[in-house]
Write a protein that binds this DNA or RNA. Structure first.
Lengths: 353, 353
DNA sequence: TTGAAAGCGCTAACAT
DNA sequence: ATGTTAGCGCTTTCAA
């Protein structure tokens, strides 16, 4: 194994000069730097990351906590973040907690400066305050933080729920749909209690997109009907909800779902009940995951700017890591989006991407 | 920041004893170990991973190279591996190369012992030999290595292509399908050349499942028809292939596809052409990814044992990491599978999971 | 602009 | 079973 000391010797400089050259510091004379770099290349020198991390206190590794990698929304986010970090010479460790609050807290408790420089968190169960209690001053950034303002400890990158829902409702209205139902919150807008009840933050996440959809409907003068119980934003929850809706005697000509999984489940469930999409009921999703582009019907949805989320996240994270003491107010950045008009609202054969 | 030295002092032992206690070595007396652990907990001691890695030469981090995290097959594999490693107290860095051979080679060249203990590779373009040239003796394990025997340098975990294809063909035959086409290799079983041509390994991967399906068909006395060109195993390739097949005058009552994406594309494409699945043509996939369970029709497919793949991979990797000098013949382990009979062969409403 | 010296926190080898 | 000592390879500080 070739060490920096050996490279320095062969290049005829001191280890500290070689180090500076390797790191591209502009205090070394260009010809000296070139000599060091050439020597390093010739000897096939590899930086020892452990030693660098121990001495400098920087690992150049980041951690991301997400519920599940098989969920396409999180996979897209992780993919974008990993690629963007790689472009900065940094690497990402992804840890999943399967939507379990305790597991996430356990993961947070194990995070320390010697294993990564910062942590990106897409939490479905913990508030900024709870995360802060585990992490103290460790650099962190949240995706879709739904903490109440007094618990918002961290910068947050947010999916464009408000503008996206508005665009979807406008789209449905423009198609003449008037009896629009919103799928993806809890019954009666009331937080359920007891066994298996969601945590505050899970409730807030579900409530958020519901509220924005309702807002948009009111803006168009449409009556906001009851919200529907869904245990989570999954395909299966969508299928069950569709069966319930049909059993109750379907009173909608459109269903605006909080995410794509739910929407795909709704479509499948309606089809199982013999309800045609979009002839009888138009359906919209949110997130722009892949399956919506090839199911039949294809899914009208909002595609968030994932690369933009990743880039912004890394910018904000790096400013935290480099200026750890700048305690400013947490910022909330909302990224851009695109309305994908497809068959679940337009009809089969229409709206090819 | 609390160091091990401080913990040792407060516990009244030497640093090396404290170190051994923290690592759970059984050479320390139980009461001594307890004293150290209690002190560590009280002081909220966190192991410095960088220092440990520098001294011990082990990072407890592994790397995984895959083409794409948005591809559900790789997401499932990465998810299983990450979870299984976490259960061993180890972490996983996932790097994607977007199916680019050069990018993967670049990633391989950057892998060194100071950044991870081993690398798991699901390569679509590099042979064992090419990987070996980049990695030398660094611990590595491949998924679905298709290298010719003389280029098989590494242990490999394989999806059950042979048994799985046999089960699918048997299933189709039992349903009375006789004119079965295989989708997922190149035209005329000949390696294409020229612009955009696939690499050897990409060809071998495509050829593998085709061959096993053809084998199974011959075992059932069925004629093996031409294979179909697909540029890759993607949904879009499936859609295009379906349109081509219909244009040529569909001569099949079943299409056996090399993976789920291709099958989902085939189904979509056939539907676009007004061909009914499975009434006119039954379709099968391979991999068992999520969308196949909720598209209409749902997809009959083979679900590999992903957790088994991950567990076996980690076992084999750990034996490499712990006994680096044991140069044995590379092993090939084929994992188990499950045939999921669903609507794309049975008909709508049948075969609920 | 370059060099000399110190030491990050831990574990391994050896001594007791 | 525990302690002593040394040093992994790098970057940082300070001096020249």
């Amino acid at each position: 194994m070739v060490t920096l000391k050996e490279v320095a010797q062969k290049a005829g400089v001191s280890p500290s000069t070689a180090s500076a050259a390797i790191r591209g510091m502009d205090i070394v004379r260009p010809d000296t730097a070139k000599r060091v770099l050439d020597t390093a290349a010739k000897l096939n020198y590899q930086i020892n990351m452990s030693a660098r991390a121990l001495r400098s206190g920087r690992t150049n590794i980041y951690t991301m906590l997400i519920p599940d990698l098989e969920n396409q929304f999180y996979a897209k986010l992780a993919n974008a973040l990993s690629n963007e970090l790689a472009a900065h010479g940094k690497r990402l460790i992804v840890q999943t907690n399967n939507f379990k609050k305790d597991k996430e807290l356990e993961q947070l408790a194990q995070i320390s400066a010697s294993m990564c420089d910062g942590v990106f968190i897409a939490s479905t169960h913990n508030t900024g305050r709870e995360i802060h209690e585990a992490l103290k001053t460790f650099p962190a950034l949240l995706f879709d933080d739904m903490s109440p303002d007094e618990d918002a400890y961290y910068d947050s990158i947010e999916t464009p729920s408000q503008a996206g829902m508005h665009a979807l409702i406008r789209h449905l209205v423009s198609l003449g749909r008037k009896r629009i139902g919103i799928v993806g919150t809890f019954a009666d807008n009331v937080k359920p209690v007891g066994k298996g009840s969601p945590t505050e933050i899970a409730f807030a996440i579900r409530q958020n997109r519901y509220d924005f959809a309702a807002q948009a409907m009111q803006a168009y003068g449409l009556p906001v009907d009851d919200a529907f119980i869904v245990s989570d934003w999954s395909v299966n929850a969508g299928i069950e909800t569709a069966h319930q809706l049909v059993k109750q005697g379907l009173r909608f000509d459109a269903l605006c779902c909080a995410n794509d999984d739910l929407a795909l489940g709704i479509i499948r469930g309606l089809l199982e009940c013999g309800v045609r999409v979009p002839e009888d009921v138009a359906v919209t999703g949110f997130d722009g995951i892949a399956p919506g582009s090839f199911t039949t019907p294809t899914l009208t949805t909002i595609s968030s700017d994932y690369q933009g989320m990743a880039q912004t996240a890394i910018d904000m994270m790096e400013s935290q890591v480099e200026q750890p003491d700048e305690h400013t107010m947490p910022r909330r950045i909302i990224v851009g989006f695109q309305l994908l008009q497809r068959e679940s609202t337009l009809g089969f054969g229409a709206g090819k991407d």
